[in-house]
Amino acid sequence: MIKIASSEITPEHIYLNRRKFMVGAGSIAGALALAACGKADAPAASAPAAASQSTLKTPLTAFPKATLDHAEPYASKAQDELGNKLNKYDEITNYNNYYEFTTDKEGVNPLSEGFTTTPWKVEVSGLVNNPKTYDVDDMLKKFTQEERIYRLRCVEAWSMVIPWVGFKIADLLKEVDPKSEAKFLKFTSVMRPEEMPGQQTGMLNWPYVEGLRIDEAMNPLAIFATGMYGKPLLAANGAPFRLITPWKYGFKGIKAIVKIELVDTQPVSAWMNAASNEYGFYANVNPEVDHPRWSQATERRVGALGHIPTLKFNGYEQEVASLYAGMDLKANY
């Protein structure tokens, strides 16, 4: 692919302004995040730790504000916070597990090109004080869209590094105000067999269902993605609205969501339904817990040769490990 600098597409003064704005926004967000860290922990111990960390690598909590109006694929950085190079736009849009269309990863994009994503409504209901139905366009305006450069680890032992654009699930939950009995979120994908040939087969129990514990959903890393590389999501990547939990295997990231219910019992996901001995509710990336089919100790970045070791919680251990303190991760796979 030919690399085109965004300066070539956007008139330069706007481009420069935007850059200035985003750098500003980024550093403010970073400062706020660091301040938040300091407040939460014992200040004396955590302040130097946070400072030294930020000199070592970009703190994960500083996410630049993002828009979806880039004509060409745009990301603020060329790598994630661990120094992994981003996958190319073409790789991310042409290598998809999206069985609603086909089991052929390269076949998803061509098959999903005509998929209708506007208008799109998302119902948020169940154990909430303010049940609401959102239009995706309204969500884009209402909730701050951020760029999130995340690793995506598929249970099939391949991975990518992807610059998503999206917003925190926590922001949405704040609005709908879950009742105290609400313990889990149950997500449901769109059911549209006439547009999704895979749904005409009985391969999985359609529509696709996934779930999260409410505290997992509240984790600042958990987002709803609306875009990728500064552009609206393609249907192949789950447009217009999908889940991203980067510390979990890719199949947790349910695509084309139309319903979010707050419930008090653990939802049964589509993959748990299909093979509960292979796919559990948690599906946290864990090199120490084997899958009957694929070893999870190593992975291969799509487009690269050779394997690399898989990191616990996909490298987000610091951010999410506390969610599972005291849990047997082998039993809760």
């Binding site: 084997d290 009957p292 089919r293 694929w294 070893s295 999870q296 100790a297 190593t298 291969r300 040769l305 050779g306 394997h307």
Partner: peptide
């Protein structure tokens, strides 16, 4: 190409358990 001739990875996690 897949494992980059890294036999440690291959034997640790692939062939012998799957």
């Amino acid at each position: 190409l897949d494992y980059g001739f890294n036999f440690n990875y291959i034997f640790a996690d692939a062939v012998l358990t799957k």
